[in-house]
Amino acid sequence: MSWSWDHFMRFLFSEYMLNGVWTTIWLATLAMLIGCTLGVIIAFMKMSRNIAVRTFANTYIWLWRGTPLLVQMVIIYTVLPKVGLKLGVIESAIIALSLHEAAYFAEIVRSGILSVNKGQDDASRALGMTWAQRMRYVIVPQATRIVIPPLGNQFNLMIKTTSLASVISMEELFRRTQQLAQIEFKVLEAYMCAACWYLLMTTIWGQIQKMLEAHYDRPFGPVADAADPKSGKPLGDAAAQV
């Protein structure tokens, strides 16, 4: 089997494959958006005082993290129609990916919220804030920066995980690659193309993630190495004491 640059380059920029790349991008983005929204809801349910609500959240996380996404996807696409809930390929893929993501993101959000210093909750309660006010004005703004790095990693995973949707015949990058390989009998070239495209997508996301993390990682307030105009001491010093 000889490597053909000609085929490789033709596959790489073929409209057929580019469409697959685009499908992967929007599928990953949409599933991430829905998954994160649901994840936040489930995270708060897991922290609820109500035992029924908490149990629901725990069971949800247990089920979706405890079974393979591939199995979940096939069940949603093939089994649900048998009980009367008929979903198309695209809907099934979006639902499976986002419900799966929600279970993981719920744990990320919960640990982010729990990692905010207990004193912040004390102080905001002492000021007379209700639970919702404490969350909105004090806890969530601080938890956000803790959640950002794992959130970025989840999206990196999501870009690659969308390839599983090929098993229910979702026409994303991986399935298109499979089909190209079969039509032209150039397996290696086709899969190398796919690898390149996935790598490009995750690399670009990696750069965006870096920028996001840099934005959220700097200390609160102006840059810390500026000197205090009065004492001439670096302002960062005070932060180290606390």
Binding site: A123, L127, M129, V138, Q142, F220
Partner: peptide, 25 residues
């Protein structure tokens, strides 16, 4: 929670560890 929050507004509290909100000036 909502009613307790209202009650607390008549009292101020200062903590050992300050507990200022780091994300606000």
């Amino acid at each position: 929670d909502r009613k307790v929050a209202r009650q607390r507004r008549d009292m101020g509290m200062v903590f050992q560890s300050f507990n200022l909100f780091p994300h606000l000036n």
